[in-house]
Amino acid sequence: MRLVKVIERLLAAIPIMLGVAVIVFVFMRMTPGDPVDIMMGQGGTVSEGEVERLRSEFNLDKPIHVQLGLFLSDLARGDLGNSFTKQQPVASLIGERLPATIELAFGSLFIGLLIAFPIGILSAVKQNSLLDRLSMGAAFLGISMPSFWLGIILILIFSVKLHWLPVQGRIDYDAGLQTVTGLYMLDSILTGNGPALISSLKHLILPSIALGSAVAAIVARVLRSSLLEILRSDYVKLARAKGAGETTVVMKHAVRNALIPTVTVVGLQVGVLLGGNMIVETVFSWPGLGRLVVEAIFNRDFPLVQGAVMVYAFIFVAANLVVDVLYTYLNPKIEM
């Protein structure tokens, strides 16, 4: 039953992604700045003929509706086209970069939740205690602190001063990792490469903290406030009246229900982590999708931007779908 619904929802994502692709297609062509001009500007003096040749190679000389038709017919065959600037298929460019972004997103999510859960639960249980005030103050800081600034501070302390962790990149050059999935930590485990696992973990920690602290702050606050409400509810009173200890009352009866609003927020954060981490990727020279897309936008590399935006759209849809599926487990009142 659930599986059928999940497949239905995935199919429903197709028109959404198409719509997104068309909108991005049109808007990119409406933004000032011509891809060929930008490329030629970098190449120095070029002849008129050369420019014309490139324009027709990229189909930029045709009317916009013809270009859109060509784009959609390629898309129907599963072809995202070639990047203007990199002369490579968009699909393989994205395929190279996406695992790095996914690895960083999961690292940040892991660190964020690892911090958020104990703090959210403890500060709700000990409301108005020193711990509560301190951690909610820290959470406020976590939300308002720009992640790139935190990233730079982390590099300064842990890499430059203490030499504990590497400054940038995903892995040491001499780790000798054979890539399988592109997720380095997973690949290290799959190929049984211990040094590579340690190296990739070390590289992942600082950017994950930089990105994950905001997640931790938001999730901790949501968890705390929904727990505070639930701890005053009748069913918590009943659990106590049954003779349940405080740990059972909080961890079983209260947290289980507080997860419902929390999961929504976490789902939204996953979308943000995957889609909005260009800055942290730049600070840590993390070879992820974010940096590729920023570059593509500046170069007016239309096919690459379109492809990447479609990937982002799919990630958002998928994250929402995961939230909805989790919902049906957490809240029996909700069906898909």
Binding site: D234, Y235, K237, L238, A239, G243, G245, R256, N257
Partner: peptide
């Protein structure tokens, strides 16, 4: 706390006013 918990529900049980909000919706 522990001694009191052995009495709650075992020796003295309580039923509440609003049954829907008193039952845990998730179990």
């Amino acid at each position: 706390g522990g001694e009191m918990r052995r009495i709650r529900g075992r020796e003295i049980a309580m039923i509440f006013q609003d049954p829907l909000s008193t039952l845990n919706p998730a179990f």
